[in-house]
Nucleic acid binder design. Structure first.
Lengths: 203, 203, 203, 203
DNA sequence: CATGAATGAGAGTTCATTCAT
DNA sequence: TATGAATGAACTCTCATTCAT
C-alpha cells in the first residue's frame, strides 16, 4: 500500500528529479512548514498524487533535495580545489581560493543552507547527511593541507576550526549583508588560517 | 477583538512572564512545531484562552522568550567578563575565560539555541533580535579588547571572526559530541585569537 | 497530543452522546464508508474538531454507537422477557412472546443491525462486542428456559439454534419484505422451538 | 468514453475472467475496502487500465465475482443433492447430507461469504443477486422435499426456515469456532428439520 | 479577567479512474 | 488492445484561534 516506486523510465526519472529540484527550492525559499504538498506539486508542475509514488512523504522530498544540494555544494568545491590547489604557489593563495569557492557556492543557495540547518533539528536523518558531508569535507581539507606542510600538530581539530571559520564567513556574507567589510574579514581569516598551518601571522 | 493587552497588575505581569518562561522552555525542548498552544497553556499553568490576551499569537510567545533568553545568555556573559577580565594577566587567560564562559552558557541551553536558529528562518523579527544581540556582544568584546592593545587593525571584523570562532566551538561541544578533542580545539582557538589580537601564534 | 477527553460537564456529556447517537444513525443509514467525519459532525450539529476531543477516531464513534445499540436491543428484550415469561402459561406463549419482542426490536433498527454485521468483518473489537452480547442473550435464554422443563438435553446447543431461528426470522421480516407469510413462518418456528424444548411438534 | 466492452475474443474473455476470479478472491481475503485497483490488477496479472475496459468500476468486479461465487456454491450443492438424495433411505439421512454439503461449501469460502454479506449493505444489486440465489436454492429444496412426503403444510415457509437453520449452522462452524459442540448442534438441527417435515421429533 | 470547549480551515495522504503512449 | 504513470477530489485528523460562560 502506497509503496514508493523507483522510476526507471527516462521521463519518470526526470519527473522525480523535477519534484526534488523544485520542491526543495520552494521549501528552502518559503520554509518547510510554510509549504504544503499541493504547493510543491503545483510548483513542480505535477499532481499531488504522483509525489507519493516517488516519495515516502513530504519530508522525503526535502531529504533527497538536501542530499543533492550538499553534493552540489561540497563536491564542486572539492573538484575546484583539487584542480587548482597545486598550481597555486603560496599557502595564502590556496586558502583564499578555498574561501572564494565556498563563498560562491554558499551565496548561490543561501536559503537552502538556512533551511537545511533548521531541518537538522527536526530530523536525525537530515542532520546525519549534513554531518557526514561536513566530515567528508573536513577530511578532504585535511588531506589537501597535509601534503603541504610536513608536520602540522592537531591537524584534525585545526581542520574543523578552519571549516567553521570559512563557514561563518559564508553565512556572514550571505545573510547579514551588514556593517562589515568582507574583504577585510576574508583577509583576516586567510591570515589566521595561514598562521594555524605554520605560516606566520602577518600583523 | 483579540487585541493584546499590556498587563499592569502585578499578578497579570507574573502570569505573562510565566507563559513566556514556560512556553519558551517547552518550545525549545520539543520544537516549536511539535508543541501546541494547549500544551503551552498546560505547562504554564494557565488556560488556552488567556494566552491570547497577552500575546498576538503563538509565535509571539516564542519571540518574547527569545528576547529574554538572549538577554540572559549575553548579559551574564558580559557581566562575568567585565568582572574578571581585568584581573587576568595575559591575553590568553582572558580569551580562555571568555570561551569557557560562552561554552558554559551554550551548553546550559543548547535546545534554546538550536530552536532559535531554526526560528530565524521563519521570522524576520526573530532573526533581527538575534542579530541585534549578536552585534551587541561583538561590540562589547571589541570594547573590552580595545582597552588591552593600543592598536588593533580591523578590530570590528576581527571581533566578528572571534565571535564566530567561539560560537562554532560552542556548537561543536553542544551538539556534535563527535570525534574531536575539544581541549585541543579550544587551545588552538585561543592561540588563533591571541595571534589575531597581536600576540604571537605559538606553534 | 490528540488525547481523548472524558467529558464530565453535563453539556459535554450531552454533546458526546449526540455525536454517538447521530453519528451511529448516519453511519447505519448510509454505510460506514459512505459517511465522512464532516458529514457526521454536521449531522450531529457539531464541528469536526470536537469529535476528536471525545473520540479516538471515526471508528471509535461507531464502536460506541454499536455498544449502545446492542445494549438497547438486547436488554429491553431481556427485561420484557423477565417480566412476562412467568405470567404466561404455555411454552408456546412464552416462545411467541420472545419472538415478537425480538422482531419488534429488530425492525426498529434494521440498518444498524446490517451495518453492525458488516463492521464485524472490518474490526475485531466490533465483532467481539457483538459476539459477547449474543452469548449474553443465549445464556439468558438458556437460564429462562431451564427453569421450565426439568431436563433438556444439549441445552446450550439448542439455545443457540433457537437464537439463530429467531434472528433469521427477524432478518427476514426486516429486509426481505418478500414472498413469505411471516405469520405462518413465526408459527412454524414457535412449533419447532417448542418441540426442541420437549413439547410435541404439532403437525 | 470509458464504456465497458463486451469481450468477444477468446483471450479477452480469459482476461476478464481472470480479473473476476483473482479480484474477487483478493477482495474477499483482504476486504473490499482494503484492496485497491492496483492490487487487483497486479494480483490478476493485468494492468490497471485494462480493468476499466471490462468493468464499469471496482464494484462491478465484485458483483461479477459474487454472481460466479454464488453459482459455484449453490449449483454444485444442488447437483450433489440431486444425485444422492434419491439413494438415501430415510429423511434424516437426506437432511444430514444437505447439511454436510452446505457446511463443506461454506467452509471452503468463508471469506467470500462474509464479504458478500457485507457488500449487501453497500449495494442493492449485490443484495439482489444474493437474495435471488437464496430463493433459487429454497425452491430447489422445496421441490426435492415435496417429492418425499405427500402433504407438507406451509412448505414455502418451512423451506425458508430450514435454509436459515442450515445457513446459521454453517456460519457458526465457519466463524465462531466457539464453545459449541457442532456435532450435537447438527444432530439437533436434523431432528428439528425432520420433525418439521412430518417426522417425529426424537427426544 | 479567566476558562476550556468549540471552531473550521488546512494539513498530509490515498486511490478510483483516466489517458498519453 | 494494453500499459502504468498521472490525476485531483476526497479522506481523516490537527491545532491556532475564538467565544460563551
Amino acid at each position: 500500500m502506497g509503496e514508493v516506486r523507483k522510476p526507471v523510465k527516462k521521463s519518470s526519472i526526470a519527473k522525480r528529479n523535477k519534484i526534488i529540484e523544485k520542491g526543495f527550492e520552494l521549501m528552502c525559499e518559503k520554509g518547510y512548514h510554510n509549504v504544503n504538498t499541493i504547493d510543491i506539486a503545483k510548483y513542480s508542475g505535477v499532481s499531488t498524487g504522483i509525489i507519493y509514488q516517488y516519495f515516502k512523504d513530504k519530508k522525503d522530498i526535502f531529504i533527497e533535495g538536501a542530499k543533492l544540494y550538499l553534493d552540489k555544494i561540497m563536491f564542486p568545491t572539492k573538484c575546484l580545489l583539487g584542480k587548482n590547489l597545486i598550481s597555486k604557489k603560496t599557502l595564502e593563495e590556496k586558502i583564499t581560493l578555498i574561501i572564494d569557492d565556498s563563498v560562491k557556492m554558499h551565496t548561490l543557495s543561501q536559503n537552502a543552507h538556512k533551511e537545511l540547518m533548521m531541518m537538522c533539528t527536526l530530523d536525525k536523518s537530515i542532520s546525519n547527511i549534513f554531518k557526514e558531508k561536513e566530515n567528508e569535507f573536513i577530511e578532504f581539507i585535511m588531506k589537501s593541507l597535509s601534503k603541504e606542510n610536513i608536520e602540522i600538530s592537531n591537524l584534525k581539530e585545526k581542520a574543523h576550526i578552519i571549516f567553521n571559520l570559512i563557514d561563518s564567513l559564508c553565512h556572514e556574507i550571505s545573510y547579514h549583508k551588514g556593517n562589515y567589510n568582507y574583504d577585510i574579514m576574508k583577509k583576516e581569516i586567510v591570515k589566521v588560517i595561514v598562521s594555524m598551518l605554520g605560516g606566520c601571522y602577518e600583523k
